[in-house]
């Protein structure tokens, strides 16, 4: 899923300067699962904003709403009744949701309440880790199911570098060396022969380096 993290409160308050009526809009997708942008978080953030503004003697009116998903036009449409009544929307979706909202509501400023951080999963409740960098050409077959692009700090395809120590990465003793993990897995899978091959220079066109990407299912385009 897409992981997001709430922006610092001061940064959010700065974006709202001069506004009297807004909507704080949550998303029922990934950011609900990772506990940063769902219905509960909409309620908490809205209260915080109201209290801060009341304290300044500069109250703000907030319409709280959470859409099923902000990355889907069908659900984005459901914000239409709210849109004419507010000066801006503070979206608690990931960057995709913010932009889908902005594309639909042309005259309405849509501001991000989150920093979209990475594509990952939850190790346990409230603990999220990065696993994929969406390079567009999956190499997990060769690397024991562990991604060197997302998990090696230098994205080395022929690692490990000389900084791997006791299974940890040179940048931080808390970070696992991806290549140590890969080698451990290849060994336990009896696939060490895959390590002896030199991984060729990567074609980054499928990554974002090839420009913005899209995926079209032709059979659904009729």
């Amino acid at each position: 899923m897409v992981i997001g993290e709430r922006k610092p409160f001061d940064e959010i308050m700065k974006m709202l300067e001069g506004l009297q009526k807004i909507s704080v809009m949550g998303c029922g997708g990934c950011v609900t699962v990772c506990l940063t942008g769902g219905q509960d978080e909409v309620r908490v953030l809205s209260s915080q904003i109201r209290m801060a503004r009341d304290k300044e003697g500069n109250p703000i009116e907030i319409i709280e709403k959470t859409l099923e998903r902000q990355c889907d036009p069908e659900y984005v449409e459901l914000a239409a009744p709210v849109a004419p009544d507010v000066e801006a929307v503070l979206s608690m979706a990931c960057g995709v949701g913010v932009q889908f909202m902005a594309e639909r509501y042309k005259d309405l400023p849509i501001y991000p309440a989150l920093n979209t951080t990475f594509v990952g999963g939850s190790k346990k409740e409230g603990y999220y880790v990065e696993r994929c960098q969406t390079c567009g050409a999956c190499k997990l077959y060769y690397t024991g199911g562990i991604c060197p692009i997302a998990r090696c700090s230098k994205s080395l395809l022929n690692g490990p570098c000389g900084g791997s120590t006791n299974g940890k990465c040179e940048i931080d003793p808390e970070v696992d060396c991806a290549w140590q993990l890969i080698l451990d897995r290849l060994k336990s899978l009896n696939q060490m022969d895959r390590y002896s091959e030199i991984m060729p220079i990567n074609d980054w066109r499928t990554n974002r380096d090839g420009g913005p990407r899209k995926m079209i299912r032709e059979d659904f385009q009729r």
Partner: peptide
């Protein structure tokens, strides 16, 4: 060489490249 990670230097905010790794550079 692959190169030390930028975290160790005076510009830890920099974007790194690593288009190639050291073994691929040798071959280049």
């Amino acid at each position: 060489l692959s190169g030390d990670h930028q975290k160790f230097g005076d510009h830890p905010q920099a974007k790194n490249v690593f288009d190639l790794d050291s073994i691929q550079l040798i071959n280049t």
